[in-house]
């Protein structure tokens, strides 16, 4: 296999915007670089070559689409690899969660505190019970249904991208939704007299 031509960032951009021959050659090199990086970084996941080739193909389309967003703050290939990585992991998450519904992981947004019998630490038990009661009041009283569902789904391990897919939303919007929920809970706990650092110790 011949090595890729070396290009600096300006040349990558020029070549990818260039005439068909130059462009094809740059695309071939970029494809090879992205495939090499992803296949090694994801080696332990035993993915087949076709999966990675599809991911890289989709990545190239996105890169060509976003060339004007490249800000020359890193090497071009590093930037391209961030897009490839997100593409690959997003696709892996989609496959992993494809048979799981939001209902399966969100319990309809109900906040059910842990079973006290499962609290195996005798020390601080009363403080934990009190904190959990406050938290439940705040979750029930201050969060929206959407926020409760998203939080439960996240606590069950469902990635934000997958929550977004099931709610006609996007990862950014889910991040903001949950951030807003976290802020409300933080404020609520403060109002109930909890120092936010102290709550970590209570639950530790």
């Amino acid at each position: 296999m011949t090595e890729a031509h070396r290009r600096n960032a300006e040349q990558w951009i020029d070549h990818l915007r260039g005439d068909s021959g130059v462009r094809e050659s740059a695309l071939t090199d970029l494809r090879r670089i992205l495939l090499l990086g992803l296949s090694k970084a994801l080696r332990s996941r035993n993915l087949d070559e076709a999966f990675l080739e599809d991911v890289v193909q989709d990545t190239l389309v996105k890169i060509l689409d976003r060339l004007d967003q490249f800000q020359f703050r890193s090497k071009f290939t590093t930037w391209a690899m961030t897009i490839a990585t997100r593409e690959a992991i997003t696709e892996l998450r989609r496959l992993r969660w494809k048979d799981v519904s939001l209902d399966d992981v969100s319990d309809g947004g109900r906040f059910e505190p842990p079973n006290p019998a499962d609290d195996d630490q005798p020390e601080g038990h009363a403080a934990r019970t009190e904190l959990v009661a406050s938290l439940k009041r705040l979750v029930d009283g201050r969060l929206t249904d959407k926020q409760r569902v998203a939080i439960n789904a996240e606590l069950s391990g469902m990635p934000q991208e997958e929550i977004a897919r099931r709610t006609d939303s996007n990862r950014n919007a889910i991040y903001k939704l949950v951030h807003d929920a976290r802020k409300k809970l933080q404020t609520g706990l403060r109002e109930e007299g909890y120092d936010t650092r102290e709550v970590i110790q209570i639950i530790a």
């Binding site: 600096n8 990558w12 670089i33 690959a88």
Partner: peptide, 28 residues
């Protein structure tokens, strides 16, 4: 989620090494 992606990114960048240089030269 970003942590998982970042870890894979670091692995991928280590795998490709230094693929860029100035000026552009054909190495084949």
């Amino acid at each position: 989620e970003c942590a998982e992606e970042y870890e894979v990114l670091l692995g991928a960048l280590e795998a490709i090494g230094d693929v860029e240089d100035e000026p552009a030269v054909a190495t084949d």
